[in-house]
Simulated assay, not measured.
Amino acid sequence: MSDTRAASQTVRYRERLSVPLWWWLPGLGLAALIALEFNQGVRVLPDWVAYAVLLPVAAVALVALGRTELRVVSGGGDTELWVGDAHLPVSVIARSAAVPRTAKSAALGRQLDPAAYVVHKAWVGPMVLVVLDDPEDPTPYWLVSSRRPEKVLAALRA
């Protein structure tokens, strides 16, 4: 993307689908427990080596799990929905809806079309459903996790 195009774009909505903060305590605790077990089994290395390796690995894993970003960007007369590196112009959206946490298992279960584009994060309850009307795209709809689906839908409609 060129700098001139990036400068003319406006972000209407942005959300990072990061893991909950409380996941960090068990994640780092598990890494520390594994390091302790490693130290008890391998006496050749200094005690701090296992901690110095495994705690950063756990932190990187938690950050990587939550690196997906959901954005609604407008600029130059076009509005697009971005989920990670995938993007979708609003002009091909036929309709959209919020999928509450209670309907999530049905949407991801037997009703799920195998050709659908799905970005599911188990730690995020609700989802956004965006039905496409693009004869050149075999994808029938996008189903994306979002903590605030109403704000995503409002940004898409604005």
Rank of each mutant, 00 (worst) to 15 (best):
D78G: 05
A94I: 05
V99N: 07
A59H: 02
D85Q: 07
E80R: 15
T79H: 08
L81P: 06
A103N: 09
H87R: 14
V60Y: 03
E69N: 00
K104E: 12
A103T: 04
W82T: 05
S74T: 15
P89L: 11
A106Q: 10
L62T: 05
V63R: 11
A86V: 08
A98E: 13
D78M: 08
R71Y: 03
L81I: 11
L88S: 13
D85W: 08
V90F: 08
A97G: 12
A86G: 00
R101N: 14
A61E: 03
T68H: 02
G84H: 03
A86I: 02
D78V: 13
A98V: 07
G77I: 06
H87F: 14
W82I: 00
H87Q: 04
I93L: 13
E80L: 11
V90R: 15
V72R: 02
S105W: 10
L81W: 07
A107T: 04
R101P: 03
A107R: 09
T102Q: 10
A61G: 12
R71H: 03
T102W: 04
A94M: 04
A64F: 00
R95F: 04
T79V: 14
R71A: 09
A94Y: 09
R101E: 15
A98P: 13
D78S: 14
P100M: 06
I93E: 09
A59D: 03
R67Y: 05
W82L: 06
L65T: 00
A98I: 03
L81A: 08
V72H: 09
S105L: 14
L88V: 12
R101L: 09
R71L: 14
A98F: 06
R101V: 13
V90C: 05
V92R: 14
L65G: 08
T68Q: 03
V99L: 02
L70N: 01
V73N: 03
V73S: 07
A86E: 10
V90N: 04
A103D: 15
A97M: 07
G66A: 04
T79L: 11
A97T: 12
T102S: 13
V60G: 01
P100D: 11
L81V: 05
A97S: 14
E80V: 10
A107V: 05
